[in-house]
């Protein structure tokens, strides 16, 4: 998995609350679009005229289509960002647009977990901080960069103000070192086998279905 240490990148804001993963990537794209092309269809219904990434043009009313957000690497989102469906294609689509970090007051839990499986850093900051960061981005006429320092667990605003965030230590290490979660668990095969052997005696019905 791709490492994440520090990132300084232009940031974009889309502060709508409860952005669900159906809105991030439509279900038919999940089944019929190659992973590497999902970014072209991210936020399709809001991003393109007619709600269609194939036939529509970029809709100027959609915040992420603003010229100052072109090439952004950090996405500032609203409350409960990524709620709904478990589709990991939502993360692939956002990563496919070029984002490596999403900052929001809160996240849909499955989406949040899926981010870390793909080297995408999801950061929870207080709502007032997110709204201030996002508001400044939306008000700016030219690109504005933020810095994210994962080791120090801070987001650094353009003026230098630092906003500390909390992150599960295992997820932090996983991103910093680019660790493969499956590989790490496979190292515990003996423990898993021993646990199952004991469990078979304790709960035989689980294994006899």
């Amino acid at each position: 998995m791709q490492k994440f240490t520090t990132l300084t990148a232009p940031a974009a804001a889309y502060l709508k609350p409860n952005v669900d993963t159906d809105l991030v990537i439509r279900v038919e794209r999940c089944s019929r679009t190659p992973r590497e092309r999902l970014g072209d269809y991210a936020f399709e219904m809001a991003r393109f005229t007619g709600g269609n990434g194939d036939s529509g043009a970029p809709d100027p009313a959609f915040p992420l289509n603003r010229p100052q957000f072109a090439g952004a690497g950090i996405l500032v989102g609203g409350v409960n960002f990524g709620c709904g469906s478990s589709r990991e294609m939502a993360v692939w689509a956002i990563a496919g647009m070029g984002f490596r970090c999403v900052i929001a007051p809160s996240f849909g839990e499955i989406f949040y977990g899926n981010c870390f499986q793909n080297g995408l850093l999801a950061i929870r900051l207080p709502q007032a901080v997110v709204e201030a960061l996002g508001g400044a981005l939306l008000a700016a006429a030219s690109p504005v960069s933020l810095t994210v320092d994962l080791a120090r667990q801070v987001v650094i605003a353009p003026g230098g103000a630092e906003h500390r965030f909390e992150i599960d230590p295992l997820r932090k290490t996983g991103l910093l070192e680019g660790l493969d979660p499956i590989g790490l668990t496979l190292r515990r095969e003996a423990e898993i086998a021993a646990w199952q052997a004991a469990d078979r005696a304790r709960r035989p019905w689980i294994y006899n279905a």
């Binding site: 478990s86 499955i110 899926n114 499956i182 515990r188 199952q196």
Partner: peptide, 17 residues
């Protein structure tokens, strides 16, 4: 519910983190 990566993890290890 889990995502596609965690699905692979479950298939390979019968566990979840």
């Amino acid at each position: 519910g889990i995502g596609a990566s965690e699905l692979l993890h479950v298939l390979a290890t019968q566990t979840i983190v």
